[in-house]
């Protein structure tokens, strides 16, 4: 057992390793995330970025190491327990309920009535409605509340999924490629949205678009072959010869 100590960080990953039949997708990773910090992880394909998110949210079980969220060990919790602890995760391709309306998508994500009997007795009252309205405004979908989610544009679907996380007020928000498939204007709006919502919580983003990263990131970590290659501020990382090598070398 890994005996890691308590810290002031929102998220503290120590010595995290996962191997699939001998292949180490993530290799003794150490990573810390502060409150109010918006941190972007970049790296070439297969660097292990998505795997790291999978490990944090419990989709993949680690081989060894520790993941502490507000000093609570996550590695032995199941997915829904991790979410209830305050970790929200957006997937790479927008994962929303296409056949339900925007309103219903948000309602399902509302963090009440999560048990079997709770959900049977759940009432859509004024408190719920207000919260849904508030989030819908934040994600710029307040006019589309009754639209079927499948009919939204790709960018709007990404926002909706972010909104489905926001309605749960998570302390840690993890976004896997939030601007993939978005227009230039939508990217700008998303950058604004992310800057707004990082207040009071921690945000961990995986992104490829360097321009976008430069605009939002407080800190950047470069992952390569399951290990950290470089970390720090964007402008320093961009100059790092190892990073240039990985991105342009071959």
């Amino acid at each position: 057992m890994n005996m890691s100590t308590n810290t002031d960080f929102t998220l503290a990953i120590e010595d995290l390793t996962v191997s699939f039949d001998g292949f180490k997708a993530v290799d003794s990773l150490n990573f810390y995330l502060d409150r109010n910090e918006l941190h972007v992880v970049i790296g070439p394909n297969g660097a292990g970025k998505t795997t790291v998110l999978d490990l944090i949210c419990g989709k993949t079980k680690s081989t060894s190491g520790s993941i502490k969220f507000l000093n609570k060990e996550l590695t032995n919790l199941s997915e829904h327990e991790i979410v209830r602890a305050g970790v929200g995760r957006k997937f790479q391709t927008p994962s929303i309920y296409e056949n339900l309306s925007v309103m219903e998508n948000l309602e399902i994500s509302y963090p009440k009535g999560r048990g079997v009997f709770g959900s049977l007795m759940f009432k859509h009252d004024a408190v719920v409605r207000d919260k849904i309205m508030e989030v819908a405004k934040q994600i710029m979908l307040e006019k589309s509340l009754h639209t079927e989610a499948g009919l939204l544009s790709h960018g709007q679907k990404q926002w909706l999924e972010i909104g489905m996380l926001l309605i749960q007020d998570p302390q840690l928000l993890m976004l896997d490629e939030p601007v993939a498939g978005m227009s230039v204007k939508e990217r700008e709006q998303t950058a604004e949205l992310l800057n707004k919502i990082s207040a009071g919580r921690s945000v961990l983003v995986i992104e490829h678009d360097m321009e976008f990263v430069a605009r939002i990131a407080h800190k950047v970590t470069v992952l390569h072959q399951g290990k950290i290659l470089a970390a720090g501020e964007m402008k320093d990382v961009q100059k790092d010869p190892k990073v240039i090598e990985v991105y342009l070398g071959h």
Binding site: H80, E98, V116, F122
Partner: peptide, 28 residues
């Protein structure tokens, strides 16, 4: 017609999303 019903439909189409919205899918 309760939230349970909408969750059933949601689970049928996107089980992972329901799980990552904090529900214990198996119990439902």
């Amino acid at each position: 017609t309760s939230k349970f019903g909408r969750l059933l439909l949601a689970m049928r189409d996107k089980e992972d999303r329901v799980r990552f919205s904090g529900y214990d899918v198996a119990n439902f």
